[in-house]
Design a protein around this nucleic acid. Structure first.
Lengths: 103, 103
DNA sequence: ATATCATGCAACTATAGAGTTGCATATGTT
DNA sequence: AACATATGCAACTCTATAGTTGCATGATAT
């Protein structure tokens, strides 16, 4: 999966809320994580499918319900992106700092 | 600005490409950064407006052209998000590890 | 066995946004 | 002054997707 897909998946208030809930409580059933989002269960289900395709989340059927869990794969992608940006950004900030301090 | 807005802004192939270009070369004019994206200048301009609203980028008019630069504000947001997630994720992985190692 | 709960799937609507074309305007350049 | 370059703005099309309703199905509890 690409970093774009991950960012896109996280770039929605409902989906980010889901991810934040998962990052706190460990595991949710599909219906429990769909509560209190201001949308229907079917709507929430669509969001979960987006998160699953982007490997932000895994869906594991268990009896009559489906367990939703965070998938570490996506986190790694975002971390890599940030650290790359950060490195390049830092060297440029360093250059700017030196430039400013020259006079 | 919210983390959602930042993620949303980065969740588009054209916009992410622009950000990557900026992270390498230091500063671009509006027309230069609009080249080779497969879309028109006006299309690219709309993307830049999205990035600006999300504080990923700053636009500074200079004579007849506009300078596009990275805005560190957004990077901080993403970093914070990742580190928070990371911390919570790690503690949960730790708990899982201990659970597995118990028998 | 029957009622209840969790989920899946399909069809539909409505809106956001990605991309375009066309034209106007301002700044450089020769 | 004349020309080229960089940009802004408006109107338009088209597609993706967020959200809905309605119904079917499979698992659990009484």
């Amino acid at each position: 999966m690409s970093a774009v897909a991950t960012f896109r998946a996280l770039g929605d208030p409902v989906r980010l809320e889901m991810v934040l809930r998962l990052s706190r409580g460990s595991s949710f059933t599909l219906s429990r994580i769909s509560e209190g989002l201001g949308i229907t269960r079917q709507g929430a289900r669509k969001h979960l499918e987006v998160l699953r395709r982007a490997q932000v989340v895994t869906l594991a059927p268990s009896g009559r319900d489906v367990l939703v869990q965070l998938d570490p794969a996506s986190l790694v992608l975002v971390k890599d992106f940030v650290s790359t940006m950060d490195k390049q950004w830092d060297t440029r900030m360093e250059r700017l700092k030196q430039f400013v301090e020259e006079d």
